[in-house]
């Protein structure tokens, strides 16, 4: 048991469709935690989250959820004091220590005219919903 497989054969699958700062942070936290536990993590990036997975997209100013701007400023300030890694750094760490793969939605990338070369190097490939569903079959799927 090298890292600690809780449920061999199962995977944790995340559909991230909203690219606001708090959701990207949770994507990083859950991915890194899954990697820590030896659980394969598969991430399907779609919707407005594609913006942050364009090449160097993570370097852009984070998008705050409407109506929570002041709350988020306090949260971001608090996170900076806690030495929390950025969501992108968490994903990098998760991929370094575990079996974590990121896929971009073929529908959204086609709509935006994006090719694999236009995306963050962390993205494994552009896939359709069928491929993602087959890869995640039998595992947990969370959507946010």
């Amino acid at each position: 048991m090298e890292v600690g497989h809780m449920a061999e054969g199962n995977s944790f699958n995340i559909v991230v469709s909203t690219g606001t700062a708090e959701k990207l942070l949770m994507l990083g936290v859950l991915s890194q935690t899954g990697a820590n536990l030896g659980i394969p993590v598969r991430i399907f990036v779609t919707g407005t989250a594609i913006k942050s997975f364009k090449k160097d997209g993570y370097k852009e100013k984070p998008v705050l959820p409407a109506g929570f701007e002041n709350y988020m400023k306090d949260m971001i300030s608090g996170l900076e004091k806690l030495k929390t890694d950025s969501w992108h750094k968490m994903l990098e760490t998760a991929m370094e220590i575990g079996d974590v793969k990121i896929f971009a939605c073929s529908l959204m990338t086609s709509a935006l005219g994006l090719k694999k070369a236009d995306l963050d190097p962390l993205v494994d490939s552009i896939v359709g919903a069928t491929d993602f569903m087959i890869q995640s079959a039998g595992g947990q799927i969370v959507i946010f």
Partner: peptide, 14 residues
Amino acid sequence: RGTACPGPITDLIR
């Protein structure tokens, strides 16, 4: 010390 979730457990795994 000073790191937040999931930092300590990631350090443990390393």
